[in-house]
Design a protein around this nucleic acid. Structure first.
Lengths: 226, 226
DNA sequence: CGGCCATGTGAAGGGAGCGTGAACTGAGGG
DNA sequence: CCCTCAGTTCACGCTCCCTTCACATGGCCG
């Protein structure tokens, strides 16, 4: 799991304790610049911003995180009881809040519900097989969390193979199903695309596409076990 | 304002006190049948279900309210601290929760935030994505606070893209959805409008619209992991 | 071991797709 | 009538990548 972004730096000990107890990884940042600098390639899993010590800095950070090109979600703020009235003017800057002092398990329950909720709303149409994920709506692909930069034909070929895992296809079948029935070209074209796909999958995952000599190619495991 | 549905009947005095203090009208129901019988013509504004006395009955009611043709929203449950772990298995039965004993103003803040959040869905006068803001009522647009002077078609195109962030659309789909189903013209028209939009977004934000070669265009980015 | 066939590999060309500048059309206004 | 502006279309050129070919590699058979 990607780490949570915490504010301020260092974060309040009670917050750290609760997150460690719940098993959430985290990194702390004291400024928006630090948050950008420390951000993992896959982005933050979310943010927990403590606003009871430095409200101005905390909400300024919330605003910045929300205005990014890829808005940070979900965002949970910790507030003291006397700050509850201030939240009304900042509804758009957070997804949930927690009143200090809080129980460890309340924070954990809120994070769980937030992740569940934000995951529900934007459930895209996905093709998944092991570490491979294809997002059919956005034409994006990822292997083991790492984004894959695929060309159009590479994506179409991988999509076709991944939607029929374990099955072997001849080059001719692939040409007709992926390229189109009227396609007339050399069968070796398939080989080259398979090679590029393997290269982009990386040495760790290239075995996802296996060669069946004298027949064609197969994605994923064969179905002997079924 | 329509009344809130409360459970059980009679509701806990602390709950009644908090709601009366905040000015929310309410009616209590002890069973799902009573909830249906007492429901106003315009429907409930929401529900607050206290689960600390009778958890089984409370969550059974939640399930019933959620399974209706028009699911009741928003739904807030009150739980005792020791019940927090039970929430994980019932994520889909509530929108937010509050831990007893609670402060009056925490419940008020949670209801406010819930109404704000669910109100977003039914009243989208604003479209926001990161630094971009579209005001649908005034036909104004702004990027990172800077006003954008968009023409009609530019605005319509950007609005359509921004309301479906991450998703890729072909030129044909864009022509039919933005220009109109009966439109008959060259697909390159889309290219030119995309280019003008990028120019007006500025070099800092033009990457919000990305080209997916051989497919079409995409606004914003997609989230991975879920 | 040696021949043969199937597949992997590297490189090069050519064409499709898209960005870009500019012209054209029609509506609206002074 | 001329000017402006929005929308559309066109021509040009560049980039990318699909395709192809030649060669290398490797497995299977005698």
């Amino acid at each position: 799991m990607e780490p949570l972004l915490l504010y301020p730096d260092p974060p309040p000990p009670v917050l750290v304790q609760a997150l460690d107890l719940a098993g959430y990884p985290w990194k702390a940042a004291g400024t928006a610049e630090a948050a950008t600098r420390l951000e993992p390639d896959e982005g933050w899993a979310g943010a927990v911003v403590s606003a009871d010590v430095d409200p101005e800095g905390a909400f300024a950070l919330c605003r910045t995180l929300r205005k990014r090109d890829l808005p940070l979600e979900p965002l949970l703020v910790l507030v003291a009881g006397h700050q509850l009235a201030d939240l009304e003017l900042r509804e758009d800057m957070f997804d949930d809040f927690c009143v200090s002092p809080f129980q460890d398990r309340e924070l954990e329950a809120r994070l769980k519900h937030l992740f569940w909720r934000t995951g529900q709303g934007t459930r895209p149409e996905l093709v998944e097989y092991g570490p491979l994920i294809l997002n059919l709506e956005t034409y994006q692909a990822a292997i083991a969390g790492r984004p894959l930069d695929l060309t159009y034909m590479e994506y179409e070929l991988l999509k076709f193979l991944a939607t029929h895992p374990g099955k072997v296809f001849t080059r001719e079948i692939l040409l007709s199903r992926v390229w189109g029935y009227e396609y007339y070209g050399g069968a070796r074209t398939v080989d080259v695309h398979i090679r590029r796909l393997r290269a982009k999958l990386g040495t760790e995952h290239e075995h996802l596409i296996s060669t069946v000599r004298s027949v064609g190619y197969r994605f994923g495991q064969s179905r002997w076990g079924l």
